[in-house]
Amino acid sequence: SKDAAQYVYDEAQKGVTQVTVNGVTFKFDNWQKLLKYAQKLLN
């Protein structure tokens, strides 16, 4: 959902490398990768 994507995006902006959405945890090597993933979700 857009809300989940926005949440992931906001978390990535904080510099975190993992985020949990609806009980599913996504882990990334660095926050830039998390940010890229979030941007994909938002598009």
Rank of each mutant, 00 (worst) to 15 (best):
A4I: 06
N22I: 15
D29K: 03
S1Y: 08
W31N: 00
L35Q: 01
F28Q: 01
D29G: 12
N22T: 14
K27W: 15
K14C: 15
A38N: 00
K40Q: 05
A38W: 08
V21M: 11
V19Q: 13
L35Y: 04
E11I: 10
G23L: 14
L41I: 06
L34K: 00
A5K: 04
N30G: 09
A4F: 08
L35G: 00
T25V: 12
F28E: 03
V24R: 05
N30T: 14
G15A: 12
K2G: 06
Q6I: 03
G23K: 09
L41N: 00
D3F: 10
A4E: 11
E11D: 12
K2V: 14
Q13D: 09
G15V: 10
V21T: 12
D10A: 06
Y37N: 02
A38S: 01
Y9A: 12
V8C: 15
V16T: 04
D10P: 09
G15P: 04
V8S: 07
Q13W: 11
Q32L: 13
V21R: 01
D3R: 03
F28A: 06
L35I: 04
V8F: 10
T25N: 04
D10G: 11
N30A: 07
A4V: 01
L35T: 00
Q18V: 08
K33Q: 06
D3P: 08
D10F: 10
N30R: 05
K33L: 08
K36P: 01
K27A: 15
V21F: 08
Q39V: 03
K14G: 11
A12Y: 08
L42D: 00
W31C: 01
Q32E: 07
K2C: 15
L34N: 00
F28N: 02
Q13C: 13
Y37R: 02
Q6F: 03
D29E: 10
L41T: 00
K27S: 14
T17M: 07
A4G: 05
V16Y: 06
A38V: 13
A38P: 00
T17Q: 05
Y7A: 14
A12E: 06
K40G: 02
N30H: 11
A38L: 12
N22E: 11
G23Y: 13
F26Y: 08
Y7K: 13
D10T: 11
A5T: 03
S1A: 11
Q13K: 09
D29T: 07
A38K: 01
V24L: 14
Q32D: 04
G23D: 09
K33W: 10
N30V: 07
Q32V: 10
K2W: 14
L34I: 02
F26G: 01
V8L: 12
L35C: 02
N30K: 07
K40N: 05
G23P: 01
S1F: 12
A5D: 10
K36V: 09
Q39T: 04
Y9P: 14
E11V: 13
E11Q: 13
D29I: 14
D3G: 06
S1Q: 07
L41Q: 01
K33T: 08
V24W: 12
L42F: 07
